[in-house]
Amino acid sequence: MEAVVETLVEVRSNLIIALIVPVLIKEGVIEKIVESPKTSAQIVEGTTLNHSSLLRALHFLEANSFFRFEESTNLWHATERGHTLAGEDAKTLWLWHFDTRKLGFMINLGELLYSEDQNLFQKIAGKSGFEVLNEIPDMLEKFQAYMTFLTKLNSDVVCQAIDLKDNMKIVDVGGGAGGLAIDLAKKYPEKKFAVYEIESVVPMARNNIEKHGLTEQVEVLPGSFFEAIPAGFDCILLKHIIHDWPAHRTITILKNCRNVLNPGNRVLIIDIVVDRTDKRYKRATLQDIYVFSDNTGKERTLNEFKEILSESGFRLESVTNAKEDDIIEAIAI
């Protein structure tokens, strides 16, 4: 019975942490404590938080090893774990994953166990997760900031693993704010790149490319990969795109890619290949639940990648590990 209660306390504590921490990040509380030890009065100053309620939250987070209270001085200190909550990267991650509107959908996650062809957004709002995002500008901005973070997190490894020596014009389909195309353009200054994105994301990508001074080398093209892929490129990048969709929709995307490629041209899919023996397996299964709940997506095994590629007119050529991701090279046949 004691073990049952301990497990319940751990799970409930993690849920409460997920709900409290984003508020403290948004109010600047985490940064204050990380900057230097402070009293609760100093911490609450300049925020819209209630002092008494904040104290309860701080004591709870102390019990969960994020902070340490020094009774002799009444100062709150950030622990090593507490420091992981500070900074722009932490802010990006926490404010996206635990946005209260997103959590409003996630609370119904268990209902998805009764079907495999409906995601949370369809079930509750009657539309896909990306359709919901496009209707809420600040959520879309949080999502794109999160995707930019993911690109930055593994960018050096991915860029090093991607070999474009035989390609001259490359399009990053669903390339978000353009992070991958920008990094590759810097690595290959002699090549031309494009970012293909929906209209609502195009301004973010153009601003980011302009900020890096690459407007002559990287263009932005508006459109939907479900309708068509722009022609005139000899290599197509699909980073964290294929895993977002069920098989029939990924095949639509890949067939659209095949329609504009010559035989022998390549598609490079950047996603994780699920393997039970891989040390990344736990993360892959967590991500699988997320993409399933958001958009009926799926993290795939090597055989599942082979199946969708074969049906779309491609041959799987190679898989290269890139730390958190894999690069699946497919050849148009």
Rank of each mutant, 00 (worst) to 15 (best):
V171F: 01
A247T: 12
I182V: 14
V274G: 00
A185Q: 03
I253L: 14
G178P: 01
R283V: 02
K192V: 04
K282M: 13
V195Q: 06
A205L: 03
I242S: 12
D271F: 03
A247P: 02
H212Q: 07
L286W: 12
G176F: 02
I289H: 11
E219T: 10
E219S: 08
N262K: 13
A231M: 08
H240W: 08
R249Y: 05
H243E: 15
T215W: 07
L237M: 14
F225Y: 14
N207Q: 15
L238A: 12
V220T: 09
M204N: 12
I170T: 02
I236A: 10
L254D: 14
E227H: 09
V201H: 01
I251R: 13
T277E: 13
I182D: 12
L221D: 11
F193P: 02
V220E: 07
I253T: 11
E210D: 11
Y196S: 02
K186E: 15
V171T: 03
D278K: 05
I251L: 13
F226E: 15
T252R: 12
A228S: 14
G176P: 07
L238P: 07
I198G: 04
L184M: 12
V202P: 07
L261N: 12
A185L: 02
L184F: 04
P263H: 10
I253Q: 09
I272N: 10
G174W: 06
E210Q: 03
N207W: 09
P222R: 00
